[in-house]
Nucleic acid binder design. Sequence first.
DNA 1: GTCTATATACGGATAGAC
DNA 2: GTCTATCCGTATATAGAC
Lengths: 231, 231
Amino acid sequence: MTYEEFKQLFKLSKENIYKEILIDNRQSIRIKKENTVIKNLEKIFEAALKISSRKGFQAMSMRDLSRASGLSMGALYSYFSGKAAIMDMLRHQLENTIKRIFQERLNPDMDPLTKLRTAIETHLYLSEAMRLWFYFSYMESKNMNRVEREKAMAAELGTEKIFIDILNEGREKGAFRRQDPYLTAAAIKAVLQDWYLKRWKYSGRSITVDQYATFLTDLIETFVLPPPLES
Amino acid sequence: MTYEEFKQLFKLSKENIYKEILIDNRQSIRIKKENTVIKNLEKIFEAALKISSRKGFQAMSMRDLSRASGLSMGALYSYFSGKAAIMDMLRHQLENTIKRIFQERLNPDMDPLTKLRTAIETHLYLSEAMRLWFYFSYMESKNMNRVEREKAMAAELGTEKIFIDILNEGREKGAFRRQDPYLTAAAIKAVLQDWYLKRWKYSGRSITVDQYATFLTDLIETFVLPPPLES
DNA sequence: GTCTATATACGGATAGAC
DNA sequence: GTCTATCCGTATATAGAC
């Protein structure tokens, strides 16, 4: 599957994303009309992600956000209880989306190699489609409060576990050779994350997400597949 | 070489590091007595790194730093021109140390495989010895001013180029198989960085830096060495 | 060389008009 | 629903005593 096909298949439409945020936060949002909320949530979060990616969430003032989103200070505070809540909503929404997409894409009946390839592709393509969300969650997780920070670490371990399980299954079924599944999974995650963390580097070299997917799949398969038999 | 041997060999003594910082910033430090400066620079930077690693540099107030370093607000400002200067000094000092250590450790006459192993080891062990410096430079580089941010990106490309050159040399000499040296080098860097970025994860699993070095070397060698001949 | 006290600006958040 | 005006705490930075 290519990135274009992925985008077609999982229309991660802004409409859907912000509708989910509204549902999850109905009680703290003081505005009644659904259409208004969704339109403004989009403005607010797009602006917050853009500013945060440039100078960090802490350095973004509510006045910055007001200017960039086009809403006044007063209006902003009708949509969340405070600055910290924006961070929580971003992290939470991304986590839900990741869970949903992996469940839709990963079929337990796949053979281990297919499963491994699909998991790598899915993570990479999703992080491409929601790049600033991933970047934000990674860079800001250390600045979250205790509860949110622990959720962020749990999410990191959660997606890593997907890879650990696949690697273990592959070894049990004799499809993969012996290797440390924890370290291998950690390495897969590290390289997956590099794609959205150092976008400037890959853009500068005109590497496409499909090329990156092919490379990473190659790297990992060379490592986990049994060496060619010497006959 | 193990990490213990590395530490013995390159005594990255605090004394030396802060002496270098003093030399590089003689004009902006208003205190005359060298011993006083070195003692206090150590207090200041250790505290700044610790606080920043917990809640980020932006969120660290000068009052936080004053309390943690044991110096008053007034005294602090005798050692640098402003908060931003602390960031610049940290980034700059790390960059100099990296350059120096790589020059000492990498010998142009080594064969490509030895060179590759040595470069991986050197980067990993140095980042272990100066973990908070690496973590700081990585996480805060996006919040630097334009000039400093560009220096940070140049440094990233600089150490990556070490790996690209080794991979190219290995291919020219027939020691390595065909692969994209840019992507391979980027992957090496990503996994190297994961070690100091996600220390909580590796500590939780009791992985030592030597185990990590062995794993990464294995992963990359399996990928770049020619496959065993089918005879 | 180090301290306390303070100047000044900017931050998040809210009240109340429209 | 959205805006403007403002409260009030805390930020960086410095002046000047010791």
